[in-house]
Computed example of a mutant assay.
Amino acid sequence: MAELYKQVIFDALGNDRKNFEEKRRKLIADISGQNNSLTNIRALLLSNDIDIEDYKIMKSKCEDKIDRLEAQLKELKTWLVLKVI
């Protein structure tokens, strides 16, 4: 009976771990996408395709999004640590 209980716990944690990894990969991909957007925005500014005001607005939006995504990633990692304990 103890072995069965142990297997159920490991299965539950395995599913949580799989969900964690999927969410983590998505958040990291979204952060990377926003960083790529920042790079493109800088290129537009350097090529004079946008003015400094537009650059500041777009940069601010990307940085805000990155901050939110990083906070979600940190929260996700904290959740996993608490789940394992």
Rank of each mutant, 00 (worst) to 15 (best):
C62Q: 15
L4R: 13
Q34S: 05
L82D: 15
L76W: 11
I52Y: 15
Q7S: 10
N48R: 15
I66Y: 01
F10P: 00
L44Q: 04
T39V: 09
T78N: 10
K65N: 07
Q72F: 08
D67M: 06
D11C: 06
E3N: 02
I31P: 01
I28W: 03
Q34W: 02
D54W: 04
N40Y: 14
I41G: 00
E70W: 02
F10E: 11
L4E: 15
K56V: 06
E22W: 06
K23W: 08
L46S: 04
D16C: 05
A71F: 10
D54P: 00
L38V: 07
I66W: 02
E53N: 15
C62R: 15
L46Y: 06
N15L: 12
D30I: 04
V84E: 10
L69P: 08
A2V: 09
S47K: 09
D11Y: 14
K74Y: 06
D30K: 12
I41M: 03
D49H: 11
K83A: 01
I41C: 02
N15W: 12
K83Q: 03
M58Y: 02
D54Y: 11
L80C: 06
L44Y: 07
K6N: 03
K77F: 09
A2M: 08
D16T: 05
W79G: 02
E75M: 13
N35H: 08
E22F: 11
I52S: 07
Q7Y: 06
A43Y: 14
V84W: 10
G14R: 05
Q34K: 09
I41K: 01
L38N: 09
N15Q: 07
G14C: 08
D11E: 13
K74R: 12
K18L: 11
K6H: 05
N40F: 12
L76H: 07
I28A: 03
D51C: 13
M58C: 00
L4H: 13
D54N: 07
K26D: 05
Q34C: 02
S32H: 09
D54V: 09
K56S: 09
E3G: 01
K18R: 08
I50Q: 01
I31R: 03
I57P: 00
S37M: 08
N35R: 14
V84H: 07
K18H: 12
C62K: 14
I57H: 08
E22Y: 09
S32G: 06
N19K: 03
R17E: 00
A12H: 07
R68N: 15
Q34G: 00
V8L: 10
I52W: 10
N19C: 04
A12C: 03
N35E: 15
S37T: 11
D51V: 13
D49F: 14
Q7G: 02
D16G: 01
D49W: 10
K59I: 00
L38A: 05
